[in-house]
Design a binder for these strands. Structure first.
Lengths: 195, 195
DNA sequence: GTCTATAGGGAGATAGAC
DNA sequence: GTCTATCTCCCTATAGAC
């Protein structure tokens, strides 16, 4: 309601997400957020009383972002391929739009799983389920329409592809090679899509 | 030299690795190690002066463990397939030998990349390179000998498979399904191996 | 090699003024 | 909504006795 400077909350969230994905849940503090924004720790606590609240908001924000990818269920082979390529572009963009690639928030949740709140776990679990069911549907339609090919069940192939992207952004940090790009190309080839 | 209780160092390392992989580099403290071992923080510092020293030792230990998988370069199709299946068994064992699956140390290094020492990064980078070159060789030999099939370059396929395993152990924590097992089956099918 | 004791700092969080 | 001030706790690390 208030406005004017109510966007402080949005700015906190933005900085928080970058830190969360850059350093992990336990790797940043309220100070790391407040300092660059020129505010005080207490102001951050006003908008996000506990660090867990901030964590949930970060994951939910990412969930809405990814949710946009999955809005329209594919029904034709062309649509399925188009959505896959949209996913590929998303992954490539996530990997290269910053200096060191930011990992997926899911990777942070998984690594810090023992230290996060039940709400954060739930939020992450929902994100996984949504992505899995969406990608599974895309794969199923795409294969049925003859646009792609792969052995086995769509559900399992979907899980495998999601895991690959999760891991590839992490490999990209450690290795001296463009892991995300290489994985995207390989996944496309495995599906019988032209490079 | 001393012996008798010099295995304290080994016990610290063992507990440390479990904590490292359970909670991430920033998610555990020297207290979390010393308490269950019935010793004091200072004793841990005696064996590992800084937390970074402990971190390096943990990664190096895992590196030696994985190095055993890659000891004998495959030259026949049978050997290549056997080594792949060894890798599959390793991943399945890592995922299921504990309650919540422990993530790969590489996942911790990647997530906490911004907070770890240069030595830890180096150690992780070496581990990635070793696994990549080993798996790449296995894939190349296996395909040349007609035991497996996949499109594209062995290097890229190797990166993709490694990324899948890295990510799949994390998905296993967040999702309510056996992600590692599903991914192993899918990877095998993609390579044209029987389930 | 392990202990006690402690330094020195930063974490997350809250109270109350403005 | 944001501030100052402060609480409490835990962190990594070191000094020096045993």
């Amino acid at each position: 309601m208030a406005r004017e400077r109510t966007d402080t909350k949005a700015r906190i969230l933005k900085v928080g997400e970058a830190l969360f994905r850059e350093r992990g849940y336990n790797g940043f503090s309220y100070q790391d957020i407040s300092r660059p924004l020129g505010i005080r720790n207490a102001a951050v606590h006003y908008h996000f009383p506990s660090k867990g609240d901030l964590g949930v908001a970060i994951v939910e924000r990412y969930r809405r972002l990814v949710g946009r990818l999955a809005r329209h269920p594919a029904t034709t082979g062309e649509q399925a391929v188009a959505q896959l390529q949209q996913l590929f572009r998303f992954e490539l963009a996530q990997a290269s739009s910053h200096g060191r690639p930011l990992v997926c928030p899911l990777a942070v949740l998984a690594t810090d799983y023992a230290n996060i709140s039940a709400e954060m776990r739930d939020s992450g679990g929902k994100l996984v389920e949504e992505m899995r069911s969406w990608l599974s549907h895309v794969l199923e339609v795409g294969r049925r329409e003859g646009a792609i090919r792969f052995p086995g069940e769509p559900q399992q192939k979907a899980v495998t592809i999601l895991a690959t992207f999760l891991g590839t952004r992490q490999l990209a940090r450690l290795g001296g090679f463009p892991a995300v790009q290489q994985a995207v190309e390989q996944i496309a080839k495995d599906l019988g899509l032209a490079a």
